[in-house]
Amino acid sequence: MQTTLKGLFAALLFSLSLGISSLVLAQDIAPINVNTADAELLAELPGIGPSRAAAIIEEREDNGAFADADDLTRVSGIGPATVNRMRDQVAVEE
Rank of each mutant, 00 (worst) to 15 (best):
M1T: 04
Q2M: 14
T3N: 03
T3P: 05
T4F: 13
L5M: 13
K6W: 08
K6A: 06
K6N: 14
F9K: 08
F9E: 08
F9S: 07
L12G: 15
F14P: 11
L18G: 07
L18A: 12
G19N: 10
I20P: 07
S21V: 05
S22M: 11
V24L: 12
V24Y: 14
V24C: 05
A26V: 05
Q27K: 03
I29G: 07
I29H: 06
A30V: 03
A30S: 12
P31I: 02
I32T: 03
I32H: 01
N33A: 14
N33E: 09
V34N: 00
V34K: 00
T36A: 11
T36V: 11
D38T: 05
L42Q: 02
E44D: 14
P46M: 04
P46A: 02
I48M: 02
I48C: 02
I48A: 01
S51D: 12
R52Y: 08
A53V: 01
A53T: 02
A53G: 11
A55L: 11
A55D: 15
I56N: 00
I57K: 03
I57T: 01
E58G: 05
E59L: 05
E59I: 02
E61M: 13
D62F: 14
D62Y: 08
D62T: 15
N63T: 09
N63Y: 11
A65S: 10
A67G: 14
D68T: 05
D68E: 07
L72Q: 00
T73V: 08
T73Y: 12
R74Y: 10
R74F: 15
S76A: 13
S76V: 10
G77E: 07
G79A: 12
P80H: 15
P80A: 14
P80W: 08
A81G: 13
A81D: 15
N84H: 04
R87C: 05
V90P: 00
E93D: 07
E93P: 09
E94G: 12
